[in-house]
């Protein structure tokens, strides 16, 4: 496990300065993500999971602690850590194809190669028919697919996703989750994904990093052993799996335990 570590987060603390002396968002969080793994950051609201992801992206700087990708320290945002946001970030003035080519254009990839790679990833997210469409004609799920294709086409070493399906309706969300697993299988991607949706976490994750709230601390890391070696392609596959109800119950209790502590405090 140690040898295949791609992202390492060590003793990260984050305090946002305020007039009253500061709000502590993260306290001493450490975990790592292995190559080709889908790691989920899960926890109740206020656990700082999005802040943590933003720190990994380089959009925030930690107050203390170190982060490294492939052994190189992380300073500021960079191409190698592409991010998909919860809000729709397809550039409305660019077509689907231009959107997917956008990152590669920034990085000076020659036009022919850019086009070829963009078309490949557009196909991967099933948007070939819409390659010349503008985002205004696309549904929310399609816009998120554009964002995923755009980030993947830019060849990041790790894909960061901040509640990417939070704004979608339930049925679209299933499709998107299933598609993401398909993409994982075919492209050998490493993903760090933030969610507050327990079922989404169990369905997608190889490993769940569970944070507790106020301040955000590492509560536990869950290895989803009951999924190991099983072929899971749809939500139904997951629900039928032995060990699934127990796993879901355990995480629910973790969440509730957090909520209860909040009330008691």
């Amino acid at each position: 496990m140690q040898s295949s570590t791609i992202l390492s987060v060590q003793n990260v603390c984050k305090t946002f300065p305020t007039r009253g002396g500061g709000v502590e968002a993260l306290r001493d969080v450490s975990f790592s993500v292995a190559r080709n793994e889908l790691c989920v950051l899960l926890g109740p609201s206020g656990c700082g999971k999005s802040t943590l992801l933003n720190i990994v992206a380089g959009l925030h700087t930690p107050t203390s602690g170190t982060l490294s990708l492939e052994g190189r320290p992380i300073h500021g945002p960079a191409r190698e850590r592409g991010m998909v946001f919860q809000s729709y970030t397809s550039f409305p003035w660019l077509t689907v194809l231009e959107n997917v080519e956008y990152g590669m254009k920034l990085n000076g990839i020659p036009k022919a190669e850019r086009r070829e790679r963009a078309l490949h990833y557009i196909d991967l997210v099933h948007l070939t028919k819409f390659r010349d469409a503008y985002p205004k004609t696309l549904s929310g799920g399609m816009k998120q697919r554009v964002a995923i294709a755009r980030t993947l086409a830019n060849a990041p070493e790790i894909l960061l996703m901040d509640e990417p399906y939070g704004a979608l309706d339930a049925e679209t969300r299933w499709h998107m989750q299933e598609m993401l697993l398909d993409i994982m299988r075919t492209t050998q991607t490493t993903i760090l994904l933030v969610t507050h949706d327990i079922q989404e976490a169990i369905f997608l994750a190889d490993r769940i990093v569970f944070l507790s709230a106020h301040p955000g601390r590492l509560k536990t890391i869950l290895e989803l052993d009951f999924k190991k070696g099983k072929e899971i392609r749809s939500k139904e596959d997951l629900v039928e799996l032995e060990g699934y109800p127990e796993c879901e119950r355990e995480i629910m209790q973790l969440m509730r335990g957090e909520a209860k502590q909040e009330e008691d405090a």
């Binding site: 992206a57 380089g58 959009l59 945002p77 960079a78 191409r79 850590r81 592409g82 991010m83 946001f85 809000s87 970030t89 550039f91 956008y102 990152g103 920034l106 990085n107 964002a147 755009r150 980030t151 830019n154 960061l160």
Partner: peptide, 10 residues
């Protein structure tokens, strides 16, 4: 988020 998208793409 539009700005951050571009920034995280390099």
């Amino acid at each position: 988020d539009l700005i951050n998208t571009s920034v995280t793409l390099g």
